[in-house]
Write a protein that binds this DNA or RNA. Sequence first.
DNA 1: TAGATTGTTAATCGATTAACAATC
DNA 2: TAGATTGTTAATCGATTAACAATC
Lengths: 214, 214
Amino acid sequence: MQKIPKATVKRLPFYRRCFESLHEQGIQRILSSQLGDMLKIDPATIRRDFSYIGELGRQGFGYEVNKVLFALNDFLDLNNIEQCVMIGVGNLGKAFLQYNVMKSQLQNSINPIKISHAFDVSPDLIGKEFSGIKIEHIDNLEQVIKANKIKIAILSVPAKNANEIAERLEASGIRGIFNFSSISLNISRSVYVYDVDLLNELQSFLFFVKNKYE
Amino acid sequence: MQKIPKATVKRLPFYRRCFESLHEQGIQRILSSQLGDMLKIDPATIRRDFSYIGELGRQGFGYEVNKVLFALNDFLDLNNIEQCVMIGVGNLGKAFLQYNVMKSQLQNSINPIKISHAFDVSPDLIGKEFSGIKIEHIDNLEQVIKANKIKIAILSVPAKNANEIAERLEASGIRGIFNFSSISLNISRSVYVYDVDLLNELQSFLFFVKNKYE
DNA sequence: TAGATTGTTAATCGATTAACAATC
DNA sequence: TAGATTGTTAATCGATTAACAATC
C-alpha cells in the first residue's frame, strides 16, 4: 500500500464530516464538482484524495454518499474510539472534555477519542467533575497511564511545565501527544507530537488579513 | 516587494516567540543551526524564511537576537493591536477571552488582538463578565461592529448558526473571520476566512499516530 | 587574513491541477 | 450506444533542502 500524503490525511476528516452531513440530508449521490463547490477544494484534488482510499466512485455517475462515508469512517478508524488522558484543565482543556459528550448531542460530528482521565495541579479543580470526568492530581499520572495502557495524551499546560510533563508521558508509554502548550517538546522522535498553537495561528491569520492574501 | 510564501508566514510567529524567549534568557546571538535544533526546522529553511523579511544576519556571525526580534514584531505588525469581536462564548471562546489579559500575565507571549466585545445568545451568559469583557446579546452585533469600525471576528458558534452570523458579519464590514465553527462559510471571497477545526485536527493526529507517520 | 556562517542559486521533493483515457 | 464523470498521467506550482559563493 502506498503512503498517503500528509496533506490528504488532513483533508479526510473534513470530507468525512461533509459526507455525514449529506447523509443526514438524505442525499445519496454526489459529484466531485459539487463537493468542490461546497468545500472550496479543486475537484481533481478531491478525486485524487479519494483514490488513495480506494475506487470509491463510478465513472459517469459520481460518488454514492453511503459508500464513501463508510469508507472514510473505516479508513480513519473512527469506530475504535481511542482512550486518552488530558493534562491541564483550563478553558481549552474544558472545551476538549466537552467533546466527550458531543457525539450524543450533536449528530453531525464524530468524536475519535474518549478522554478517560484528566489531570491538573490546581486545588480548585482537583476532585471536581467536568463533562463526566473527575479531575485528578497530576501525581497520579504515571500510575493511571500504565494501568490503563493509554497511548494518547492531550497536553494543555503552561509552556514552562510542558517539557517536564512530556518526559513523564513518554516514560509512561504514551505514543502520541496533541500539544497545545506552545512550546516545541524535547522528547524522542518515537513519540508523535502534533503541535497546535492558537496564538500563533491568530498571528498568521492577522497577517493574511492585513496583507490581503488570496 | 516579493510576496512571502504562506508556509513562511505560518512559521514567523513561532520564530518570534522563540526569539522573545532567547531575549528573556539574555542570549544575544544565535546561529541558524542552533535555531534548527531548537525548533526542529532545517536551518536552510530558517535562513530562507528570514531573508524574506530582510538581511537580518551577518555572515560568519549569525543573528543578533534583538535585531531579529524587533524585525519580526515589526513585520507581523504586533505593535498595532487589532480590535476584534468574539461571537459565541463557550469554553473555546472563554479560552480566547483569556488571551486578552495574557500579555500582562505571561511575559513570554504577545497577544496580537484585543477582544473588545463578546456576544452570545444564552441568557445565562449575557451580562456576565469574563476576562474583563461583558457578554452582550447577539442582537447588538451589527451596531457594535459598525460603531467601532471593527474588522476582525472570532467565530465559535455551533455549525448550524455559523453561516447566518457570517453573513451578518460581512454585511457589517468585517474583513477577516477566524472560524472555529467547523463548517465551510458561504460568504464572498472579499472576507478572509481562516478555518481552525480542532476535532478534525484531532482525527488527523490520531491517524498519524496509529499509522506511525514521520 | 583565515574561519565561519549567512543569503541565495540550483536541485529536489511534495502537493495541486489540467487534461484525457478508461469506463460506468 | 452515447453521455458523463471518474481515476490517473503528465504538467505545474509551491515548499524544502543541498551546496556554495558572498561576505562579515
